[in-house]
Amino acid sequence: MSDILLETRDLVKHYPVRKGVMQRTIGYVRAIDGVSFTIERGKTLSLVGESGAGKTTTASAILLLEQLTSGSIFFEDRDIYKLSNAELKNEYRPKVQSVQQNPWSSMNPRMRVRDIIAEPLVINAKLNKEDIRNRVLALMEQVGLMPEWADRYPHEFSGGQRQRIAVARSLALNPDLIVLDEPVSALDVSIRAQIMNLLKDIQDEYNLSYLVIAHDLATVRFMSHSVAIMYLGQIVEYADSEELFKNPMHPYTRALISASSISGPDEKDESIVLSGEMPSPINPPSGCRFHTRCIAAFDKCSVEVPEPRVFGTHYATCHLCDYEEGWITKSESKSV
C-alpha cells in the first residue's frame, strides 16, 4: 500500500487588497483556493502552472513561510497546525527542507560554504564541532563537491556548483521531504542534466519525497511520479505522471503540453494556442475559472463550477469529462 508522507486538504490563501488612507479591504487575491494533494514517501509530486497559478504560495504554506487562510496540512498523519511550537521546531521543520530556484541569491554571500552547509546543523542538531565538520564534508562529497572547497565563498562557484551546495544544505538534517522550487530553471542547459540526475540519485538513496514546482513539462515528466496542474489557484488536473502525459484530459493541460512540444516553423500549425492571458485572481471568472481562455468552452462552463471527475487515480475538473466523445469533438461542433 502507498505510504503517505504529507497530505494537504483544501488549502486556501486569500491576501487582502487594501486601498486608501484607511487601508480598507476592498477585495481578496485568491492566491490558492482549495488545493488538496498527497505526497507519498519516496515519490515526487510536481505542481505545474503559469505564474500566478498559486504553486509558490502552496509551497510556502508547506514550508511554514505563509499563514494559510484555511485548510490543513497533515505530516505523517498529524495536523501540523495542531502541533506545539516545540513540536514544529523539532519534528516538522527539520523534516521539510527546500532548494530554491536561484542559486545566486539563496545563500548568504558573506558565509563560507562550510558554514552555509553547517547552518541547519548548528541551529537544530545537538552535534559537537567535530561531528558537524565531518557531516559537512560527507555531505559535500555526496553532492559531488570537493572537500577542499569548504572554505570558499559562494561567489567563487558556478551556478551548477552552487545548486549542489544548496542540495547539500537541504540534506543536512536528514529530511523526509524537500521542496524543489524550479531547481534547474536558472541553470545552463548542459548543467541541468547533472543536477537532475543528482536529485534522482539522492532520492533513491534516502527514499526522499520531493515536491517539485516547475513550469517546464519535460523536466516535470523526467522528475515526477505524479503531477498536479494548477490554474488560478486551483488544481485542474491531477494524475500519475505517465498517465497524465499519455492521456491529458483537461483542455488547459493539453494546451500546456502542446505549447512545449515540438512543431517546426514551416509545418502546418496544429498546436493549441490559447488566446488571452490568465485573469486576475482578485476577481476570478464565474463557473470554470478557465472558461475565458478555453477553446472548448460552452454555455455551461461560465455558469457552473465543474466538479472533479475521477477516473481511477486520474482526476480533472472539466465539464467536458462528462461527454464520452471527448472535448475535441465538442469544440469542433461549437466552432463552426
Binding site: 542547459v189 548542459s190 547533472q194 540526475n197 515528466r221 502525459f245 503540453i257 512545449s260
Partner: peptide, 24 residues
C-alpha cells in the same frame, strides 16, 4: 548531440539524462 541528449523529453520518460561533464 550532447546538448540535445541532455534535455529531458516531453514525449517519453527517461530514467537518467545524459550529462556533459564539466563547465564551459
Amino acid at each position: 548531440s550532447a546538448l540535445i541528449k541532455s534535455v529531458p523529453r516531453l514525449d517519453r520518460k527517461d530514467d537518467r539524462l545524459y550529462s556533459i561533464k564539466g563547465h564551459p
